[in-house]
Amino acid sequence: MARVNGKDIFYKIIIILVLLIALAPILWMFLSSFKSRVDIISYPPKFIFTPVMDNYKRVLQMPTLMHGLRNSLTIVPISLLLGFIFGVPVGYIFARIKFKRSADLRFFILSLRFMPPVAVALPFFLIWMRLGLLDTIPAVIFTYLTIAISTMIWLTIECFKQVPVECEEAAHLEGCTQFQVFSRIALPLAIPSILGMCIFIFILLWNEFFLAFVITSQRAVTMPVASAAFAVVGMEVPWGQICASVILLSIPPLILSYFFVKFLPYFFKVS
């Protein structure tokens, strides 16, 4: 028994070390966000210093950055939701219904993601320009739908395949319609992994930089684009403000993902 405990503690220590590796760079950024410029660039690196709030004050005063955060918080969840609505049933179809060319279509969906952003960005820019939608939130959402829907389908196929076929067959026998089987049996059973995939897609969209850079400018600017703009003031790198912005801008998605990990599975299981 004692041996087992020893092993247990050993693994716990390793896990804590791993968590440190995950967090150390972020902690360093957190620390740096309270430093004045002279403390950030001084060597040896300073662990003890007089904290200043200047960086946070400046970041919070930058209208564009907060605007970008708001836009991202609108664009990404809506794209994700639309991706869910359009993608999840199709993922289910691919997993359960056999039809001609199913494998080819599936590969087509994956191949949508092969296209280098540099190539598609310009055509998108020109479409939205002609439609007068440049720099608007709907344009960004539509552009992101390719990513959201195709990734959603691609990732949920396997989630549905994990659901035991027997449950569905039983439901069919009891006279449920196909939609009922999908919405009452398959979806609730597969939802924990689907939500995991949603986090993943959320992160993909949240970090998307290039397409948003080309098709937005100010009104619909997303968080990565806005924060990239402030990463260089003139040609000066404002280290403290960058750190403060990294910390501040990570908080909303953090809360969201906590929500995903912790609460959503229960919500779906209950219903």
Binding site: P25, I26, I203, W239
Partner: peptide, 24 residues
């Protein structure tokens, strides 16, 4: 749950900002 949560954090950082910090 805490481990899961912490594991997601590095991916949530604004990449451009984080990249500058790594540069330093």
């Amino acid at each position: 749950t805490i481990c899961l949560f912490i594991f997601i954090i590095p991916a949530l950082l604004p990449r451009v900002g984080a990249a500058y910090m790594w540069r330093l």
